[in-house]
Amino acid sequence: MGDVRLKTTITVNGEPCALDVDTRTTLLDALREHLKLTGSKKGCDHGQCGACTVLVNGVRINSCLSLAVMHDGDAVTTIEGVGTPDNLHPVQKAFLTHDAYQCGYCTPGQICSTLGMLKEMEAGVPSQETPAGARPVLSDDEIRERMSGNICRCSAYPQIVAAIKDVAGVAA
């Protein structure tokens, strides 16, 4: 079989993007190689590190484990849609202030994951840290468990927790 291409329209950071992609193209590669939005990172390409985390219709997912053609009509938010160097989002500012990154490669995924995580908290999605039957509270351990889908090999983990607590308005 030769290559199969399909036309797909994905709204990325508020802009409708008409793509003509190989069916094999992942959402991550569509962002990075086709749309030149290289903020979403490829750390493992198998859903094992979280560096590719983006928000699809407001929900955080691993963009490496999804095909671009599966997202026709979806609204995708990448790190580029969160804020810019001159106009940082509060979560980005908190990461900067708390030094919640070192090499920076996992950072866009951590930040997108934080945004998704805070929404999940609001929605009452449980984690294995949440006591049975209780509504989750954003404790340090809840943050740690809920951010465990994003590996940081530089290990800025304590700083990431501090940044998230800061931005979520929890006393650090």
Binding site: T78, E80, T84, P85, L88, Y101, G104, Y105
Partner: peptide, 15 residues
Amino acid sequence: DRYEGPLKVTGTAPY
């Protein structure tokens, strides 16, 4: 804060 921080937290530092 890190000199290159604004680029890293916005995904605009090109690796």
